[in-house]
Write a protein that binds this DNA or RNA. Structure first.
Lengths: 161, 161
DNA sequence: CAAGATTGACCGATCAATCTTT
DNA sequence: AAAGATTGATCGGTCAATCTTG
């Protein structure tokens, strides 16, 4: 076992700041969406991904991949959205094992209603507090992180983001 | 409803990169700790916080605050760590309603054993992939985020429950 | 009564097992 | 067989209610 390279003060602070601030940010955005529109940030993200897909639908596996959710986790989440009338299941005609999750008009309406709250939150708590340069640096820095994990591209047929 | 200020391409990318990369990073670090030492990142963080406290102990309320966990959530997490012999409860002598969670020698040993894995992970997946300047910029940018946390502000706007 | 901690009910996620279709 | 999706058991978290102590 080799010698441990400890983190110095700045490295440790950068790491901890990243973790704590990102968590706090998500918590605030989630609370705002929940309070004003009765929708969780997690469900909001499902609607966003579906809304950006061709024909506003995705196969379950592709959607699970895009949301970094397990197959069973996605099944239950879609169940809940179906109960609210925001998503429907469609059999996939070319492969009868598979299903599409389709965004309904009601789901699109819910997303459209909630989007301003979410975007204003992202601005108020994040984007507007950083300069253009800071924002670009941050994105550029983070882009190289954890690349090997995200190359989980088994589901071609969608998630073309 | 006021005019919505949409996010432009760079703003949106910075925001999404922050969210997805941070989540991926935590997932990797958690998996590494779990695989090599049988401890979750969440439990690791409990041990870290306790190890840094005076006398390696904290009252439950203080610990819950430090970990951003609800009181009941902390109770169950400490239960689990007590079962593993890594933490003990001590009655607080000055206030008999309260308890300390105390890091045991075994808990400290577990932390010491796992720390190199964690630190090497933070280096390999994060710190060593950014320049010193990028790291400082990132920390500086994020520091101003979400300072006022959880203001239950005018949430009466469009409450369409 | 208020504060600190715990318990019960429940929610949302995972893994393992299952069912259907390829 | 293997792949896509779902179900059952279970885990870890929250909220509401409770118990004990200040």
């Amino acid at each position: 076992v080799a010698e441990v390279r400890w983190l110095d003060e700045r490295e440790m602070r950068a790491w901890r700041t990243l973790v704590t601030k990102t968590a706090a940010l998500r918590a605030v955005l989630d609370a705002e969406l929940e309070a004003r529109h009765g929708i969780s940030l997690a469900d909001y993200e499902v609607l966003v991904v579906l809304s950006e897909a061709p024909e506003r639908r995705l196969r379950m596996a592709a959607l699970a991949c895009g949301l970094h959710l397990s197959p069973s986790g996605l099944t239950r989440r879609i169940d809940a959205l179906v109960r609210r009338g925001w998503v429907e299941r469609q059999r996939c005609p070319s492969d009868r094992r598979s299903f599409f999750a389709v965004l309904t008009p009601e789901g699109l309406a819910a997303l459209t209603a909630a989007a301003p709250t979410h975007l204003e939150g992202v601005r108020a708590h994040f984007v507007d507090r950083l300069s253009r340069r800071q924002l670009d640096n941050l994105a550029a820095g983070l882009r190289g992180i954890c690349t090997e994990v995200l190359l989980d591209d088994t589901a071609r047929d969608g998630v073309a983001r």
